[in-house]
Amino acid sequence: MTSFNKSNLLHFGVLAGLVILFFILPTYHVGVLSRVMVMAIYAMGFNLLFGYTGLLSLGHAMFFAAGMYGFGLAIKFGGFPVPAAFVVGVLSAALLALVVGLLALRTAGVAFMIVTLMFAQTAYLVVLYFGKYTRGDEGFILQQAERSLFGLDVTTETGRYFTAFTLFAVCFIALAKLVQTPFGKRLVAIRENEERARMLGYDAGRYKLYALVISGAVSGLAGVSYALLFGYVGATFSTVQYSIFPLLWVLLGGAGTTIGPFIGVLFMFYLIDISSGYTNAYMLIAGVVLVLLTVFAPKGIAGTLKARVFPWMP
């Protein structure tokens, strides 16, 4: 079998597994998986920029939040129907990513990390400043009636699971395809050696901007999905911590692999889920995992598997 077929099979297997799991898992875990799939969208958006293009943003929470607030505020104050609000959310994130990209991509390396961190911090403070509308840290709830998508009730366990699944599946397949296109391969080329890519005639700056906009839009889509499926919009999601999470997930699962983000989110959710039974200092686990990963396994789970066992892995 060619590696192309093998990776198709892997992707299909992951999706089929998720459908089967719905029918065999107890309700609690079905709920966890819905959340995991939404956050995996976020992680996949981050992965396109970090894993494939080699740009480490420490401010992705602003894109997640842009999607979330774009969607939430469009419903709350704009009276938009859900599908329109959905589009507003994703577009807000993409637009923010475009503006941030035009500025931040003038820098590189450590400066890029700090600039994105600072922009995200600014975004967080802006959310707090306009507390009259955003309700700040407390956030606001979207009622069941405000969240019906084409007549579908996304507040039931089943409705939520399969909406999350559909959104996840679309992003998963679309991104897996994208990184196989010439465009995706050029992003990898820029990650590997930006100057060489430029001296092959590729406009590296433009490719990086495109990658950032797509990455921001996908992260925003995750934010929209979260607000849609869990009915909550709050400033917590724009804090530094939510910029660190996708980095943690992607590093754990394997940067620059198609299934790494999902694996990372899944592991981290259960790790935190289990440990928060023992202590309220559950972020300790995140810290320990980050340090261990950077020192011992910078390629993450999927990356290590790819390097050691399955070289065909996408």
């Binding site: 420490l58 300790l284 810290g287 910078p298």
Partner: peptide, 20 residues
């Protein structure tokens, strides 16, 4: 790059150990 990630990890380790 890896130092930034590792020190983010250290940040949480120190902070959360203090919390505990």
């Amino acid at each position: 790059d890896r130092t930034i990630v590792a020190t983010i990890g250290m940040l949480y380790i120190i902070q959360q150990t203090t919390l505990m």
